[in-house]
Design a protein around this nucleic acid. Sequence first.
DNA 1: ATTCTAACCTTAACCGGTTAAGTTGTCCTC
DNA 2: GAGGACAACTTAACCGGTTAAGGTTAGAAT
Lengths: 341, 341
Amino acid sequence: MSPTIRDIAEAAGVSTAAVSYVINDKPGVGEETRRRVLKIMREMNYRPNPQARGLAARRTGMIGLMIPDITDPFYVNIVRGVEAKANELGYTLNLCTTHGDAERERDVAELFASGGVDGVIMMTYKLTPSELKELSEGRAPVVAIDNPEAAGWVPSVLVDNIALGRTATSYLTELGHTRIGFIHGVEGSIASMRRYEGYVQALKSQGAEFSPELVEYGGFTHAGGVEAARVLLSRPQRPTAIFAANDQMALGAMSAAMELGLSVPSDLSIIGVDDIEAAALVVPGLTTLKQPTCEIGACAVGILADLIRSPEGDDEAGASDVGQRVFEARLIVRGSCAPRQ
Amino acid sequence: MSPTIRDIAEAAGVSTAAVSYVINDKPGVGEETRRRVLKIMREMNYRPNPQARGLAARRTGMIGLMIPDITDPFYVNIVRGVEAKANELGYTLNLCTTHGDAERERDVAELFASGGVDGVIMMTYKLTPSELKELSEGRAPVVAIDNPEAAGWVPSVLVDNIALGRTATSYLTELGHTRIGFIHGVEGSIASMRRYEGYVQALKSQGAEFSPELVEYGGFTHAGGVEAARVLLSRPQRPTAIFAANDQMALGAMSAAMELGLSVPSDLSIIGVDDIEAAALVVPGLTTLKQPTCEIGACAVGILADLIRSPEGDDEAGASDVGQRVFEARLIVRGSCAPRQ
DNA sequence: ATTCTAACCTTAACCGGTTAAGTTGTCCTC
DNA sequence: GAGGACAACTTAACCGGTTAAGGTTAGAAT
């Protein structure tokens, strides 16, 4: 088997404590001894056992990351940000996906709570805020991403989806559009609802038309986007622009438009959200709103690392000051939107 | 703090050993005692500490997964397969990305080797097979995915990229094409080289033309595909079909064709590899070769779990029998290929 | 009545580290 | 030259579980 700290200690003629001090760069060991121990560690190819270390020092060096779906580019990009920052801070990542399943979310939360990780980053939609809060009061602190409901309960980093909706919609109204369709994601999606809220706000403030006839659901999928757009475009007075709550649906809307003989952007302007890879590849390119996913991930890790270092709760200020960081989406202009003719 | 096994033992009036037996469903505990202990565990919201467990029982319940890039759909789909199967077998995933960086690959390997995981699944391209083998002889067994060089050294699961190249190319020759271009990925990519090899084999066996003029590099990116296709299509005798080593480049080739006023598939047939999401969304749909990524991932976990259960090495049969499982890619026919006119 | 067996449970040594407290030796100071 | 301060180690008690080996007890077999 691989050598233990005792083997090293013996070989170097010192106590395990001394070796431990060397490993952790702590004072109390002479220069000469330190060098000797290091040399022997190298020679014997010694690697401290992370489990034993963790057990004794009460840390695992791991951050748990819970996301619904590793296929969705939005989450993947957040994972990238998280990974980069976590790595920078010396943490390794424990990734679990939940597929939006409530039970699985609970299982994973349980797993993380049992102490396998030093902290948890959660993108969860089924767990209630109080469940989250309870979890965070256990062994590992929690930071929530993209969950407005959890904000206020646990430290959160969010994107302002209402502003996002306003930005997208205003961009279209400023191009002269007044009949603008909206394609929701799945029913009950908070992100979708907030984007819709921004859409309504912008319509009102710009004096553009608002009608339930302009709103459909597309389930966040390409096929759903096709369906929804077909419905919207076959209405007596069809919209001249469509704002879809994500890019897959926006691309679906684009297909539907082509299928109906409408040209994008001259007959129909389309705007999406997420800036997925395909958005840049289609012709015309899809104008979209990009959320700063990498920064979001990195920011969450930063907050979490602080919490791990100095566990909360010991302040009298009350729970009202749980951190919260809000990011804004950025408009990426490509070719899919044009002034109304 | 959260209760320990000693707290439970005390509350139940038994020894910690008894509690441990209950936790692990081992015999030697009476029905009544077992029930009492379970009840108390529930009441006190007890969760065994995974680190302590791992230390004592010499397992972590984690599988390390090393991939170059979490953005690449090919890897992501493998991760999905791995995650699902790992989860099924009670393992959790420790994900690390290397960005194809040799030093990072070594760091991660080191991390895994130090015993943080029970086994490792590697998609690595910079580590030498002997480094891999050495790693696998340490604390954690290793399974390699998609690394033909490692096969024979460590248990491997692969896709037959030569056959893939043959399949793609034969599909085109059978449609009557004789001048078929090939777009490589990055230089030195083994996958790309093997696909090329299959391409050459198919050309030869079908008596089609082979010329260095028909081969370009596209670096696996969309932009690179555009570039490469431009070059190929501006040659005196332009190819009537192009086989790109991945879908991004194939889509790039499609853009280049449109840009040059060529229509796909009537003027130019295009075939790619990977079946990325966008392949189904463009018009015409991209014909492509899909690797059974989920099965590959699941298969790797299966092999690894066996190795973890019964560590190798104890057989006299020699190292020649390291497992190896080869998968075949499947042709997905969409609209981007047509008979030569 | 004694021995054997089996079921049930406890003791205590580990797993491989960390770390507070204690020991030893050296040098400095007054 | 006694006392104190400091550097360099060591001792040993943990961290929170697992598990081999041993101890009781009750009931069955002899």
